[in-house]
């Protein structure tokens, strides 16, 4: 299932991060972990993709970072969704379901028996 990481398209990864952060603020490690768990161990985001994506979203002001203390008592950078990010999440989400719907419609095309 590891390979699926490579196939995660850029936009989808952003969508996943935004969605996960919509449930509350968390640091980088937790974001990856949460995606991994919720996807029933199917989607594993590696650091090499995660951090650049998170930083990109921060640059776009879709998420906001603040420093806090982690459960281990260590300084950690927590991310949370901004209002702009929430709006973007809604848009991306409906775009994604549109996309999935249309792809599945095509895939459900009946194959000819000839």
């Amino acid at each position: 299932m590891k390979d699926s990481n490579n196939e995660l398209i850029h936009g989808t990864l952003d969508l996943l991060i935004l969605k996960v952060l919509s449930t509350g603020k968390m640091h980088g490690w937790d974001i990856a972990k949460r995606i991994f768990v919720v996807s029933e161990d199917r989607l594993m985001i590696k650091q090499g993709s995660l951090y650049p994506a998170v930083h990109r979203l921060e640059q776009k002001r879709l998420i906001k970072a603040e420093w806090g203390v982690s459960e281990l008592g260590r300084r950690a950078k927590f991310y949370k969704l901004t209002r702009k990010g929430r709006k973007r999440l809604d848009q991306e989400r409906s775009r994604w379901s549109d996309f999935v719907d249309s792809v599945s419609m095509v895939l459900n095309l009946e194959e000819s028996k000839g």
């Binding site: 490690w29 002001r61 420093w67 260590r74 300084r75 950690a76 950078k77």
Partner: peptide, 28 residues
């Protein structure tokens, strides 16, 4: 976005350390 970039331009040293910390935390 531009304003954010300009701001981070002036705290580039800080941003660098933040990045080190963040990744070190993940590693830990």
């Amino acid at each position: 976005e531009l304003w954010f970039k300009v701001r981070s331009l002036f705290r580039r040293g800080g941003a660098q350390n933040d990045l080190d910390d963040e990744l070190a935390f993940h590693l830990e």
